[in-house]
């Protein structure tokens, strides 16, 4: 199979994730969409590694996973702190500051 197809899939997943970030209202779901974007990036890295015949892309995918895990720790703690004080995780309700 042509490896370029995996790139199209990666771009599609990235777009789905980006659209989700912009459209969804729940902070957790927004965050999951960001994770989807990172996973799409991983797919692109691995595919490019295969196309170029070197391992850089595969190694970078591991780095991405570790960074994404660290981001989850920080992100969920912030979202939970917000949820405890407001009883909601909707990003529309975080509107005390405007302009």
């Amino acid at each position: 199979m042509n490896p370029a197809n995996y790139l199209y899939l990666a771009a599609l997943l990235f777009t789905v994730g980006a659209a989700g970030v912009l459209l969804r209202r729940n902070a957790i779901v927004v965050f999951m969409c960001v994770e989807l974007m990172l996973n799409a990036t991983n797919l692109a890295f691995v595919t490019f590694a295969r196309m170029h015949g070197n391992y850089d892309g595969q190694v970078i995918a591991f780095f991405t996973m570790v960074v994404a895990a660290a981001e989850v720790v920080v992100g969920l703690s912030i979202i939970i702190a917000i949820f405890r004080s407001r009883r909601t995780a909707s990003v529309d309700d975080a509107n005390l500051m405007k302009w």
Partner: peptide, 11 residues
Amino acid sequence: LSQEAALKYFL
């Protein structure tokens, strides 16, 4: 306000 700032910055 502070928590909202953290959420916005993070997302």
